[in-house]
Amino acid sequence: MNARLTTPGTPPWRPALQRGLARGRAFVWFLLKTLLPLYLATELLKASGLLAWLASYLAPVMGWWGLPGEAAAALCAGLFINLYAAAAVAAPLGLSWQQVSVLGLILGIAHSLLVETAVVRGLTPSYKALTLLRVGLGLASGWLLAMVII
């Protein structure tokens, strides 16, 4: 975004590639930090049987979206942390493409709520209503999609 700040002699792509490299490196580090621990934790919870036990309580609710009870963990990770966290939790669950699509749609609309609500707050005073709208729209459209494809 700071194209105007570069010195007139250098072509714009050079600093852009440098910034891309820095961003890429930071992103890979962020990815490893977020994804690996959650992926490991999910595998361990799965192997220990704890996940299945928790899931048995959530299965009736998650069933509205055609999702197994285990997917509630991925949903929470996405809503409160971010989509990379949700992917780390969802990947070991062995969901079908339809289930991944429903989860992806719900979370695409409503995710990283803690951080993003703070951003929206800077844009409009109606940020609380907008956050509720996101969660509502996400759940509603996910439910509709599940009705159609699952």
């Binding site: 079908s96 989860l103 749609l105």
Partner: peptide
Amino acid sequence: DTAIFMLLGGSALAMLGPRVVL
């Protein structure tokens, strides 16, 4: 957003279409 869930097998049309329409 769409790419992450496509990697897990999701359909781009199903995930992105409704968002744009909404």
